[in-house]
Design a protein around this nucleic acid. Structure first.
Lengths: 254, 254
DNA sequence: TCAATAGTGTCTTTAAGACAGTATCGC
DNA sequence: GCGATACTGTCTTAAAGACACTATTGA
C-alpha cells in the first residue's frame, strides 16, 4: 500500500450529476439543462454541481434535486410515492479527460419522479426541459438516426444517462420502483404504461394485471376509482410495502 | 445551477478501495490488510490507495489489485476466467466524517478472484490475509456473535464489504460471474460449491447440474475429466461466452 | 466391499404466455 | 348503439423443486 500522507494528496473536484427520469405522454424523459458557460456552452447537460465541504454525497444529490425540480428525495428505505422522488447513487465517473478544465470526479445519482408540471432552473424557464431519452441517446443508445434528436449531451453525460436508463430498466424488473413514476394514487393501467414507456415494449394488459395484483404487497387498493383514462372506471391503488418483486416482472425479449 | 468556478472548488482526496472476494475451503473470503498507521492502527482494512492525477478510476483499482494480489483485471466485456480477476465499480462513499484526517471520497471496486495461494502485501507476509466474510461481518451483517470474529474493520469498510458481498450474491444470480471464482477449468460440482459458499445455502446437485448445463453458452466442455474431488471422475468445463443467465439462477429463500 | 461424487430421469408445482369473454363508463 | 378501457378466466408451456436411480472412481 502506498504511503498515505494527507498533506500531499492529489487534489480533485467532486461533483454530483443527476439522471432525473420521468414518464410523460408515454415516453421516458430525462431532465436536461442548457449550459450557459464554456465548455459545451449552449449544449444540453445533466443537472449537477459541486459537493460542499461538509456534505454527504447523497445530501448533495438531494439538494441539487430540490434546486432543479423542487422534489424532495425520499428515504431510500421507504416506498417512493407521493410528491417525493426516489433517489439512489448510480455510479462514479472520473476519467482524467472528462472535463477539459480540471480533474473532476462526478458521483452520478439516479432519480425517478412522477410526471411534473414543468421543470424550473433557477428562474430561467428556457434553460431546463424534459427531453425524451430516445431523442437524447437514439433508439440504440447511439446517435445519428432520424431527425428529431438534439445534439449530443455535454461532457460524458450521454454515457451517464445511458447507464441511468439501463439501471431504471433493470430495477423495475425486480423491485416495486416503477411506482416512483406514478402519482400517489394510480391505476393498474397507468402502472402498465410506465413499464411500457421505460422498456419500450407493449405488454399484455391481462397478464400484467394478474401479475401486479397477484404479487403480495406490491399494490394496495385505496378504495377509490377513476375514469381519467376513459372507458370503464379503474380501481385506484397506492404502492404497498413490498420493495422487491419475487418472482420479478419479466421484460419481454427484444 | 451554482456558479462553476474551477479556482475555488472544495478540495477532496479521492481513493479506491477494493473488495476482493474469493472462495476458500467452502467459505466466501475477503482480502484484508493490517493498517500500519493511525487512525485505526493495527486494525484490518480493505486494500486501497489514492487515485493518481492522470489515472482513471478503473485503472487505479486495477493497479491496486495487482499490487495487492498480483492478479490482472480482465476487460469487463470478456468472460472472467483464467489467472485474471473480474473487476467492476461498486459504489462511492463520501461521508464527511468517514476519515478523521480529511475529506476523502472513496470509489469502491469489487473484484472476484479464484482461490489463490497466498496474498502478498508489499513483502510483508503478515499484513494481508484472506478472512471469511462471516468473521468480518457476522452472519447477519453485524457484529457481536460467536467468538471467531475479528474486531470491526477500519473506517466504514464493514459497510463497503457488506455492499460488495451483496453485489456478488445478486450478480451470480443473473450472470455467469460465478465462474470468476473458479480456475480456468472446473467441474459442475466445483461451480456448485461456489454458489453454495457465496449464498450460504445448500443446493440440490441434480437440479443444479440440469440448470447450468442446460443454459446455452454458460459452460463449454473442455474435454478432460478430473477426479480431484474424489468419487466418479467429473467432466471439466470452461466458462462460455454467455454473460447473462436468462432465466437466472434462483437463490433459495432464507 | 463401501463411501463418495457424477450424471440421468421422472413427477409435481409454479408461473408466465396466449388467448376469449364480460363489465362499465363516455359519447 | 359504439368505442374504449377494466377486469376475470382458461389453456398451454417453460422451468424450478423434489425426489429415485445408475455410473465410476479410490480406499
Amino acid at each position: 500500500m502506498p504511503s498515505y500522507d494527507p498533506s500531499t494528496f492529489p487534489p480533485f473536484a467532486v461533483t454530483v450529476d443527476l439522471v432525473v427520469l420521468t414518464v410523460r405522454r408515454h415516453a421516458l424523459c430525462a431532465l436536461v439543462v442548457r449550459r450557459g458557460e464554456s465548455p459545451f456552452q449552449g449544449r444540453w447537460a445533466l443537472p449537477g454541481g459541486f459537493v460542499r465541504t461538509d456534505e454527504d454525497l447523497g445530501a448533495a444529490a438531494a439538494r441539487e434535486l430540490v434546486e432543479e425540480t423542487g422534489l424532495c428525495a425520499h428515504d431510500p428505505a421507504a416506498p417512493a410515492v407521493g410528491n417525493g422522488a426516489h433517489l439512489e447513487q448510480l455510479a462514479t465517473y472520473g476519467d482524467p479527460g472528462r472535463d477539459p478544465r480540471m480533474r473532476v470526479v462526478s458521483v452520478a445519482h439516479l432519480a425517478l419522479a412522477p410526471d411534473l408540471p414543468a421543470p424550473r432552473a433557477g428562474g430561467d424557464a428556457n434553460s431546463a426541459r424534459w427531453a425524451p431519452v430516445v431523442d437524447l441517446l437514439g433508439p440504440g443508445g447511439g446517435f445519428g438516426r432520424d431527425g428529431e434528436q438534439s445534439e449530443p449531451l455535454a461532457f460524458d453525460h450521454a454515457r451517464i444517462l445511458d447507464d441511468g436508463v439501463e439501471r431504471a430498466r433493470s430495477k423495475i424488473e425486480y423491485s416495486s420502483l416503477a411506482t416512483a413514476f406514478c402519482p400517489p394514487e394510480f391505476t393498474v393501467g397507468e402502472l402498465r404504461r410506465v413499464y411500457e414507456a421505460v422498456w419500450g415494449v407493449v405488454l399484455d394488459p391481462r397478464n400484467f394485471h394478474r401479475k401486479v395484483t397477484g404479487t403480495p404487497g406490491f399494490l394496495v387498493p385505496s378504495g377509490g376509482t377513476t375514469t381519467r383514462q376513459g372507458g370503464r372506471p379503474a380501481q385506484l391503488f397506492r404502492a404497498g410495502a413490498a420493495t422487491v418483486l419475487n418472482p420479478p416482472m419479466l421484460r419481454p425479449e427484444v
